[in-house]
């Protein structure tokens, strides 16, 4: 059983998620709150996958939200209404394991949750597009092959056709996409220190759980 949480301040979306996920076998929605602090206060022990709204109205920083949830032992699938590219990139760098727009259908969402719960990455064209067209001069260096697969996947192609066009297997193509995510996370790591983590854990009151 995969435990799932939702952090979003849109009431309608929370209600919709609850009714959506209620009937999905293998998933259990254990908490849905409007802020990360609230979420961490109500859940004790790790939730496997948290669906996190990219931009919450409480003024919190997406990267910080993701780090706090990861520090609490959850994996994070970021969702948003509009694919805001620079925020998607910083979410990936902060440790998000996937990104989806909110207009995706239930099977896509469930597949993403299952992929992330199994330790993988839920790739989406939007996430690939944000990384492929990242103009930040500090962006990690991608090899030409990685960039080609990333661009093809970002354009909406299946992994299979992106792999064929690059002359590689589907598994290798997926490795490339995973590697892009890993490079971003490595580049984003300096702000993610052990003391930072420990402080967060204390702040969130997790050590008393």
């Amino acid at each position: 059983m995969i435990t799932v949480g939702v952090v979003d301040d849109d009431r309608m979306l929370l209600d919709g998620m609850r009714s959506w996920l209620r009937d999905v076998p293998g998933l259990r929605l254990v908490a849905s709150t409007a802020t990360v602090a609230e979420f961490l206060a109500t859940t004790c022990g790790a939730v496997d996958v948290v669906l996190l709204d990219l931009v919450l109205r409480d003024g919190s920083v997406p990267a910080q939200n993701i780090r706090r949830l990861r520090a609490a032992g959850s994996r994070v699938l970021v969702i948003s209404t509009v694919p805001d590219r620079s925020r998607i990139v910083s979410a990936v760098a902060a440790g998000a394991d996937g990104y989806l727009t909110k207009d995706n259908d239930l099977p896509t969402l469930v597949a993403a949750i299952e992929e992330i719960a199994a330790g993988g990455t839920a790739h989406s064209p939007e996430m690939a597009f944000a990384c492929a067209h990242d103009d930040d001069p500090a962006r990690p260096r991608l090899s030409p092959r990685e960039l080609q697969v990333l661009l093809d996947y970002a354009s909406g192609m299946t992994l299979k056709s992106a792999a064929r066009r690059a002359g590689i297997t589907v598994n290798t193509a997926k490795d490339y996409l995973d590697r892009v995510k890993a490079k971003y996370q490595q580049a984003g790591r300096p702000t993610y220190t052990k003391t930072d983590l420990a402080r967060r854990v204390r702040e969130d009151g997790l050590d008393g759980c």
Binding site: S155, G156, M157, T158
Partner: peptide, 20 residues
């Protein structure tokens, strides 16, 4: 469903229409 991307690479325009 179809995917449309339109990007500028320097002064060049690259547009793709992709379906699965």
């Amino acid at each position: 469903r179809a995917y449309l991307t339109a990007t500028g690479v320097g002064d060049r325009l690259v547009v793709t229409v992709v379906d699965r």
